[in-house]
Design a protein around this nucleic acid. Structure first.
Length: 404
RNA sequence: GCGUAGGUGGUAGAGCGGUCAAUUACAACAGACUGUAAAUCUGUCGCCCAUUGGGCUACGCAGGUUCAAAUCCUGCCCUACGCA
C-alpha cells in the first residue's frame, strides 16, 4: 500500500482546478504547491532553514545526480535523503529520465522543454535512428539507457528497475518511474515509439516497486505521462498509465509554449481524479496558472533558483535583471508587494552590489526571493480556488506581470 | 644626474614593419535561462554612417625613414627600479 494519500478539498467549477492535501510519511502538502528543486540533495545556495522559512513544503532531488555523486551506498548509509540533507519535510526524487533527454537528444542542442510552434517548423526533425547518437552522453534501448557520466566520462546503465532500486536507497516519499523525455523536435513516429516504451518501463517500475513490500509502504510511485505535443498520444498515455495503480502521476515531456495548458488539460481529464498530478519542470507564472486551472497539483522547476543565481528576479511587474545599471542606486526592495526575508531586509542596490562583486550571498538572497515569489503565488492560487476568485487572480496577476 | 626597463583601448596586459581598430582577461552594457553538466551561457564593447560594408581618429608627444609604422630612427616628456 502506498503511503501517499490525496484528499481533494475544493474544486473550481468550470475548470479542472482543485485544492487538496497530500499526506506523506514526512508531513502534508497543501496543494496546489510548488516543489522546490534540490537536485543534488541541496537547494542551491540555501540551507533547509531558508527553504522552510520561505514557505516550501516539499523538495525534489534527482536520482541520476545522487547516483553519480555521492552514490547510492552513501545515500543508504546516510539513512536516506531526509537525514542526509537535513530536510525533514516531504521529498520526491526524479527518476533520471529527464537526463536521458538533456544528456541525450538535447545534448549540445538548443532544445528546451517548451518550444514555439514557429521555431519548430523551421527545424529539421530529430533523427529517429537510435544508433546515431554520436557525441551524446546517453543511448537508449528497449531495456534501458546507457550513459556516460558528465563528471568523468565513465559508462553507466539505468534500467527502470535500477532507477527504482536507487530511488529506494535515496528514500524520498514520492518517487518517479524511469521515463524518456523526448525532444520537441522528434517526429511523431519517434514520440509514439518512445511513449510506448515509457509505458512498458512504467509497468516494470511499478512491478519492481510493489515487489519490494517494505519500500512500497514507505514510498509512493508516480507514473509519468508522455506523448509530446500530440493530443492523441497524450490521451493514450494518460489512459494507459491511469489504468495502472500509481500513487500519483507526473506529466512530463515537451510542449508547445502556447498551448501547454491545453495539453495538460487533455491529460488531466483522463487521469484518475483522486490521485495527485505533478507537472514536471514547469515554473513560469503564466504556465503555473494554466497548469493549476487544468488540474495539476504539484510543479517543480529549476527556473526560480537558477534565474535567481543569474540575477533575474521576479516582481509583481515582471522580471527584472538586477545586474542592470539602473538598480545600482535603487534603494527600494526587489518587489514592494513581497514579504520575503530578502525584500523585508535588503534593497535592490544591495543585491546589485552583491551580484557585481560576486558575493555568495547574492545567490542566496535572490533564491530566497524568487522561490518565495513562486511558492506564494501558487499558495495564492490555492486560496483563490477556495474563495472562487481564481479567474480574477489570474487576470490581474497576468495583466500586471506581463504588461509590457 | 648617470644606468636599466618601460609608456598600447575603462583596467591589466599581448603585439614588435603590412593579414591591427589592435589577441586575451577583467570591468562595463544588454540578453537568455522551465523534471539543474548552470554562482552558467550568449551578444556588444574607439567615433560616425551602413545590410554585406564604408569613412574618420587612434597604440606618451613631436618629427623622420618606408609603398606601408603600435611596431624602425631621432629628439622631447613622463614612470619604475638601480647607482650617485
Amino acid at each position: 500500500m502506498s503511503p501517499i494519500k490525496f484528499t481533494i478539498e475544493k474544486e473550481l467549477s468550470g475548470t479542472l482546478a482543485r485544492a487538496g492535501v497530500i499526506t506523506t510519511p514526512h508531513g502534508d502538502i497543501q496543494t496546489p504547491a510548488f516543489v522546490t528543486v534540490g537536485t543534488k540533495a541541496t537547494v542551491k545556495a540555501l540551507t533547509p532553514e531558508h527553504v522552510k522559512g520561505l514557505g516550501a513544503q516539499v523538495v525534489l532531488a534527482n536520482t541520476y545526480h545522487l547516483y553519480l555523486e555521492p552514490g547510492e551506498k552513501i545515500m543508504r548509509e546516510a539513512g536516506g535523503l531526509h537525514n542526509f540533507m537535513n530536510w525533514q519535510g516531504p521529498t520526491m526524487t526524479d527518476s533520471g529520465g529527464f537526463q536521458v533527454f538533456s544528456l541525450g537528444a538535447a545534448f549540445n542542442a538548443k532544445v528546451g522543454k517548451l518550444s514555439k510552434v514557429a521555431q519548430e517548423e523551421m527545424t529539421i526533425p530529430e533523427e529517429v535512428d537510435e544508433e546515431d547518437k554520436a557525441g551524446k552522453l546517453a543511448k537508449i534501448d528497449e531495456d534501458g539507457v546507457t550513459f556516460k557520466s558528465y563528471k568523468d566520462g565513465s559508462e553507466h546503465r539505468f534500467t527502470p528497475e535500477r532507477s527504482i532500486e536507487i530511488q529506494h536507497a535515496i528514500g524520498a516519499d514520492m518517487i518517479f518511474v524511469f521515463d524518456e523525455c523526448t525532444s520537441p523536435m522528434a517526429s511523431y513516429e519517434y514520440q509514439r515509439k518512445a511513449m510506448e516504451r515509457t509505458h512498458r518501463w512504467a509497468k516494470r517500475c511499478l512491478e519492481f516497486h510493489e515487489e519490494s513490500k517494505l519500500q512500497n509502504e514507505k514510498q509512493g510511485l508516480f507514473g509519468i505521462v508522455q506523448g509530446g505535443r500530440h493530443r492523441d498520444l497524450r490521451e493514450e498515455s494518460a489512459r494507459v498509465l491511469g489504468a495502472m495503480d500509481f500513487a500519483g502521476y507526473g506529466i512530463g515531456g515537451s510542449f508547445d509554449k502556447d498551448d501547454m495548458d491545453k495539453a495538460v488539460g487533455w491529460v488531466n481529464a483522463i487521469l484518475p481524479k483522486e490521485k495527485p498530478r505533478h507537472l514536471l519542470g514547469i515554473g513560469e507564472p503564466i504556465d503555473l496558472f494554466g497548469a493549476v486551472e487544468n488540474g495539476c497539483d504539484l510543479f517543480d522547476c529549476v527556473a526560480p533558483t537558477r534565474m535567481a543565481r543569474n540575477g533575474s528576479l521576479h516582481t509583481s511587474d515582471g522580471r527584472i535583471n538586477i545586474n542592470n545599471a539602473r538598480f545600482a542606486s535603487d534603494f527600494g526592495p526587489i518587489d514592494s508587494a513581497c514579504d520575503c526575508y530578502t525584500c523585508k531586509n535588503y534593497t535592490r542596490a544591495y543585491l546589485s552590489h552583491l551580484f557585481r562583486s560576486h558575493e555568495m550571498l547574492a545567490g542566496t538572497l535572490a533564491s530566497v526571493h524568487n522561490l518565495h515569489f513562486i511558492i506564494s503565488l501558487v499558495e495564492k492560487m490555492r486560496t483563490a480556488i477556495f474563495d472562487g476568485t481564481f479567474e480574477q487572480l489570474k487576470t490581474e496577476f497576468i495583466a500586471q506581470y506581463y504588461k509590457k
